[in-house]
């Protein structure tokens, strides 16, 4: 049973069909990547999984339960973490409060003491992954550098210990050295037991990190294979890896 399964999902923006019936599945423990060019429908797909957008038709199941059409704030409570495109951290809140926002869904139920315990544990876990965030905990999110903001965005999505982490372009706008570092952490997160669905324009980095990959073009999946095979695929090499 796949952890996440999309079946024949169509998504419209106004009158325009942005995603034209895709099928996609993610098994527990995998890193799966969805690669494609600008405007291919990657971010739209991710937003639809987390409930920010509604699919026009088709089904999305998480742990065999339909989640399509449920609002984002409900999906957030099911064990899906989302580090959105452009990081979208809360620039006017402190780093600590940004991380606290990650626990928002989990803090609806349970006692105060439990919350305190969960929160302490979550901060420790995230600070272990990103020690810089602990140093900057009281600083406003908006004052962090791009790389630090990306770490904060990922850390925030990890606070609830999600089963599935949706990562939207974590390398965007970062220096090559930082990109490597981020991807190391992504792999580390996966090793610690979190399944990851990763969207990237940097296909090389993504395919090297992932177990499997999908290639999306103008709203349709055109290829689906193991990362190794995709890295060897001529079409992929030409279109996404910049090789002749």
């Amino acid at each position: 049973m796949p952890l996440l399964e999309l079946h024949d999902v169509h998504i419209h923006y106004g009158g325009i069909e942005a995603v034209k019936g895709i099928d996609l599945s993610v098994e527990e423990g995998e890193i799966v990547t969805l690669i494609g060019g600008n405007g291919a429908g990657k971010t739209t797909t991710l937003k639809t999984i987390s409930g920010v957008k509604r699919p026009t038709t088709g089904s999305i199941a998480f742990r065999d339960k339909r989640i399509d059409g449920r609002p984002a704030h409900e999906v957030a409570g099911l064990g899906i973490g989302h580090a959105p495109e452009g990081r979208r951290i809360f620039g006017r809140m402190s780093v600590r409060d940004n991380l606290a926002m990650g626990l928002y869904a989990a803090s609806a139920r349970g006692s105060r003491a439990e919350h305190r315990r969960t929160a302490d544990e979550a901060y420790q876990r995230v600070f272990a992954l990103f020690p810089i965030l602990e140093e900057r905990a009281e600083q406003k999110g908006g004052t962090l550098s791009g790389g630090q903001q990306q770490m904060l965005a990922i850390g925030r999505a990890l606070m609830t210990r999600p089963d599935l982490l949706l990562l939207d372009e974590p390398s965007m706008g970062l220096a090559p050295m930082l990109v490597e570092k981020i991807f190391d952490v992504v792999k580390e997160i996966n090793r610690q037991g979190t399944t990851i669905l990763l969207i990237e324009q940097n296909a090389h980095m993504a395919l090297n990190a992932a177990t499997r990959g999908y290639v999306i073009e103008s709203g349709s999946i055109v290829l689906e294979d193991s990362s190794r095979n995709l890295l060897g695929n001529d079409q992929v090499r030409k279109a996404y890896l910049g090789e002749e």
Partner: peptide, 24 residues
Amino acid sequence: TRAGKGIRAVAEDPETASLMGVNI
């Protein structure tokens, strides 16, 4: 408070707030 943080988050970025589980 939690609700207060929710208000601040929605004020800053409603979409991301909803990803965090904030019911807008």
